[in-house]
Simulated scan of single mutants.
Amino acid sequence: MSYDHYIVICKPLHYATLLGSRACAQMAAAAWGSGFLRAVLHTANTFSLPLCQGYTLDQFFCEIPKILKLSCSESFLRVVGLIIVSVCLSFGCFVFIVVSYVEIFRALLRIPSEHGRHKAFSTCLPHLAFISLFISRGVFAYLKPPSLFSPSLDLMIAVLYLGLPPAANPLIYSMRNQELKDAVRKLIGYMLLHH
């Protein structure tokens, strides 16, 4: 999505040549391939663990850190390996998105008309909001300090981590719709007046 925005804003006349069906297929293959690699590594790691603390998780889905807690073997090297692979894949995507948006914002600041800048920013901001929401939840879910451990907090974070993006996605991407913006403003105004 960030590359698409980059091409549309920074190189609009080259859109058809830079973002043709071959480029789209390559980007999809890279995304699916990296996701598949990560899933295979996690699955192979999980099934190779000897479990000796029962088979009950305090989650409604099998999350890797929870499964590692059930293992009776020393899993430090496994955890470090999985973290390194996950960070490398995630960091590569993050750098690609940041570089794309730095170039986009540089191009947007060169647009002479205020209306043109506003229109271009309104195209990019929903994607940035969604990415920020996704990254912040992931960072909090996986990098929170052990002192904040609580089964109920972990369950709430897991529900937010899985449920918030699909629920927020239509709202975030429809914020360019003026009728929806007006309805949200009325709702917020109504809530502020009656509380």
Score class of each variant (00 low, 15 high):
M27H: 11
S86W: 01
K181Y: 05
G138A: 12
S152D: 07
V159T: 04
F121D: 01
M156N: 03
I83E: 09
I64T: 10
V99M: 04
G35D: 15
P50E: 13
P166Q: 06
F94M: 07
G189Q: 09
A23C: 08
G163Q: 05
L193H: 10
R22K: 13
C124R: 02
V87G: 04
A25I: 06
E103S: 11
G189M: 08
V95K: 00
I172Q: 02
T123F: 02
Q53L: 03
C24Y: 09
L109V: 10
M156G: 00
D154G: 08
L77P: 00
F121I: 10
R176F: 02
A168L: 12
A167T: 11
K119M: 05
I67A: 02
R106H: 14
Q178S: 12
V85W: 06
F130Q: 06
R137Q: 12
T123H: 04
I188M: 13
C62Q: 06
K66A: 10
Q178D: 09
L153P: 03
S2T: 01
I172C: 02
Y55Q: 04
L148S: 10
I97M: 05
G35Y: 14
I64V: 14
L160C: 01
P112I: 01
N169A: 10
D182V: 10
V102W: 01
L192H: 11
F60N: 04
K66C: 03
D4R: 05
H194Y: 09
C52A: 14
R137A: 11
L133D: 05
H127A: 08
Y142K: 08
S132H: 04
F121L: 14
S21M: 11
L49G: 04
I67N: 00
E74I: 07
M156F: 09
R110E: 15
T56D: 04
C88R: 00
L68D: 03
F47E: 00
T43A: 13
G20I: 06
L128S: 05
L125I: 14
I67R: 02
K186F: 11
Y161P: 01
S152P: 01
L148A: 13
S73F: 04
R22P: 02
K119N: 03
K186W: 10
L57P: 02
R137M: 12
C93Q: 08
F134A: 10
T17Q: 13
V8I: 06
P65F: 04
C72P: 02
F121Y: 15
K186A: 14
P50V: 12
S174T: 13
I135Q: 09
H194E: 09
D154V: 01
I9L: 12
Y15C: 03
A28M: 14
Y55E: 05
M27S: 12
S150L: 03
S113G: 11
L125F: 13
T56P: 00
V102I: 13
S113M: 07
S2R: 00
R137V: 13
A129N: 05
A107W: 09
R137T: 11
A158T: 10
D4K: 05
R78A: 03
S150N: 14
T17F: 08
M156E: 01
I84Y: 02
V95R: 00
L125K: 07
S136C: 07
L153E: 02
G138P: 03
A31I: 11
P112F: 02
R110H: 14
L153K: 04
Q59R: 07
T43V: 11
E103V: 01
